Simulated assay, not measured.
Amino acid sequence: MSDGHAPIWRHLIELIVERDLSQKSVLDFGCNQGGLLRHLYALRPFRKALGIDIAEQSVAKAEAFKGNIPVQHAVGGTLEGWIEEFDLAISHEVIYLIEDIDAHAADIFKALKPGGVYYAVTGCHTDNPLWPKWRELVAQRTNTIVQDRSITDYAKAFAKAGFQVSARKLEYDGFIPYFADGWTPDFADALDYYTQTKIVFRLIKNQTGAAS
């Protein structure tokens, strides 16, 4: 996601319940070029953060762009070795690309400290009225196996991992930029997507750290 979507990022950050991150460790899973973490640090400075992504070029750019903020970037698709390290985790339009969502949920659960929170955001689900068209675009543009999962499917996977699951619509309340990117050629669809379709999961790891 490009910095052109910064207003959406800022809205998402405003939805994060945890206000003071000054002593917190943060994870951005699927960080791309690191823009979300840079925006988060500007608005709510954190103690340290890790941005991880499977794309080496994106991670290299994230590292080049980070400036002096306390962020480490890494190439990868799992969090092996990161055990109870993070207070807060975020992923933005990443979970729909993950083939084994159960493994991902368990991975994040292990990486969070007891009481840690994961905000997972996606509008790519089968409850999205545009999904029949989008699944073709996903296949063409990402070279991944398309996952047909509903909002409930995601909720069940995270609950299975031990998370306390809740969610809300993103309900972006600002002016939505028009992008001729093929995803929403009808601008009315874009307005609906950012206000009604895009979902923010808030997933809490219980204080004991044990899966239920």
Rank of each mutant, 00 (worst) to 15 (best):
M1G: 09
M1L: 09
S2V: 00
H5M: 11
W9E: 05
R10E: 12
I13P: 06
E14C: 04
I16S: 01
E18H: 13
S22Q: 15
Q23P: 02
Q23E: 15
Q23W: 05
S25H: 14
V26M: 08
L27S: 05
D28G: 03
F29Y: 14
G30T: 07
C31L: 04
N32C: 12
N32F: 03
N32Y: 08
N32S: 13
Q33Y: 02
L36V: 10
H39K: 06
H39R: 10
Y41M: 04
Y41S: 01
A42I: 04
L43D: 12
P45K: 02
R47D: 06
R47F: 12
L50F: 09
D53Y: 02
I54S: 13
I54N: 11
I54Y: 10
S58R: 09
A62E: 00
A64D: 07
G67P: 11
I69D: 04
I69S: 04
V71D: 01
G76T: 10
T78Q: 10
L79W: 06
E80W: 10
G81V: 05
W82P: 00
I83V: 15
D87R: 06
I90H: 03
H92W: 05
H92N: 15
I95L: 11
I98N: 02
E99S: 15
A105S: 15
A106F: 03
D107R: 01
I108Q: 01
K110V: 10
L112Y: 02
K113Q: 12
G115K: 09
V117Y: 01
Y118H: 11
Y118A: 02
Y118Q: 02
Y118E: 01
V121H: 03
T122D: 09
H125L: 13
H125Y: 12
T126E: 07
T126Y: 12
N128K: 06
P129V: 14
L130P: 09
W131T: 11
R135N: 13
E136S: 14
Q140P: 00
I145H: 14
I145N: 14
D148W: 07
S150E: 08
T152E: 14
T152S: 11
Y154Q: 03
A155T: 03
A157F: 04
K160A: 13
A161M: 07
A161Y: 05
F163P: 02
Q164K: 14
Q164Y: 12
R168W: 02
Y172I: 10
D173L: 07
F175P: 00
F175G: 08
F175T: 10
I176D: 07
I176V: 14
Y178I: 03
F179C: 00
A180E: 10
A180C: 00
A180L: 00
G182W: 08
Y193C: 06
T197S: 04
K198V: 05
I199H: 04
I199S: 01
F201H: 06
L203T: 02
G209D: 09
A211M: 05
S212K: 13
